[in-house]
């Protein structure tokens, strides 16, 4: 018996140790976040945007500390800062033209005021009048998550499920990415970690069928929130966009208003191609909200400033890390503040 125990006991110990090592990155971060959570939303956002902020702060501060007058050169440097933050030529011009006009009209002299104005302009473009996101307005409330390859859809879905689970909802996640190798396993592992049920089929199954089954299950088993993962797809592949339309059609057969929300996930590292992504996904399947991921790097995600304004789609959440809690509701004021590092 002792011999038997030893043999079983040892590998288990090893396994545990290994797991702690292996998953440190993922498991530990939420704890850290938790303790910092009480320090208020502003701090959390700043923490998420730390690197962005560092970069921006130093440059903006350098820019403002070294000079006293508002001149052409200052605007050129502001242009460089905005463009290197992926804000894009058109949106940068719009921001700076407005700024220049106001400086002239209101005969602004202090840099501090100019800086505040820039912040206001950014907030103005980011503030989209939209109804608050309320998953209680339908039961079950169905959310479909779409995006191009590698933007972080699956991770975001786990974070969303966790977000609403802590708010007392009963979420169900759906492995609608039946194409990419091991995508189903990936979501299943996340679901287990979050502690939410998952509906899945075998790889290669028709995603529409998976979704139909999932809605069925949600209704009969009383889940009030359904979050659907879809395979990453380039927006230029028309056959794959058709597949998304089909998923929507099939969904509507079960629940006429579904999906109640369709989120497009954008990678903050993406440059001006994000316009094309939003435009195509919007035209093809209509998008109700954006989620901006990977804001914990040095990428600024500035492209959303122009996108929000042009397409009138609100950003609902931002992703600021690999941990399960690293998802924040989007707030234009905080985003602009953190972006400008002030």
């Amino acid at each position: 018996m002792i011999w038997w125990r030893k043999k079983v006991g040892l590998p288990e110990e090893n396994k545990e140790e290994g797991q702690v090592l292996g998953e440190t990155q993922i498991e530990k971060e939420p704890e850290l976040e938790n303790s910092e959570r009480r320090e208020g939303l502003w701090k959390r956002l700043v923490k998420g945007l730390q690197k962005t902020r560092d970069h921006f702060t130093s440059r903006i501060e350098q820019l403002f500390s070294g000079r006293k007058t508002i001149d052409r050169e200052l605007f050129d440097e502001l242009e460089e800062i905005l463009i290197t933050s992926d804000v894009g030529v058109a949106a940068t011009r719009r921001l700076l033209n407005n700024l220049e006009e106001r400086v002239e009209r209101e005969s602004i002299q202090e840099l501090e005021i100019l800086y505040k104005m820039l912040e206001e302009e950014i907030i103005g473009l980011l503030s989209i009048p939209a109804e608050p996101l309320d998953p209680n307005r339908a039961d079950p409330f169905v959310i479909m998550v779409v995006g191009v390859n590698g933007v972080g859809k699956t991770t975001t879905i786990a974070k969303l499920a966790n977000h609403w689970k802590t708010e007392g909802k009963k979420p169900l996640v759906v492995a609608g990415d039946t194409f990419r190798a091991a995508a189903i396993d990936q979501l299943a592992m996340w679901a287990e970690r979050v502690g939410v049920p998952i509906i899945k089929q075998r790889p290669g199954a028709d995603p529409s069928a998976v979704v139909y089954d999932a809605l069925d299950a949600a209704v009969s088993r009383g889940y009030d929130l359904v979050i659907i993962d879809t395979a990453g797809r380039m927006h230029t592949k028309s056959n794959l966009m058709e597949e998304l339309k089909k998923i929507r059609r099939v969904m509507a057969k079960k629940i006429p208003e579904a999906p109640h929300e369709t989120f497009l996930v954008l990678d903050a590292t993406t440059g001006q191609n994000a316009y094309s992504q939003v435009k195509t996904f919007k035209e093809e399947i209509s998008i109700s909200g954006l989620i901006l991921t990977k804001l914990d790097g040095t990428a600024k995600g500035g492209v959303v400033i122009g996108i929000c304004h042009e397409f009138g789609i609100p950003i609902r959440f931002i992703g600021v890390g690999e941990g399960i809690e690293d998802l924040r509701p989007f707030q234009p004021e905080l985003f602009a503040k953190a972006l400008l590092g002030h």
Binding site: G271, Q272, A299
Partner: peptide, 12 residues
């Protein structure tokens, strides 16, 4: 590197 990467490509 993702071909869609923006200005951050330089830093990365």
């Amino acid at each position: 590197v993702d071909a869609m990467t923006g200005q951050d490509a330089v830093k990365v």
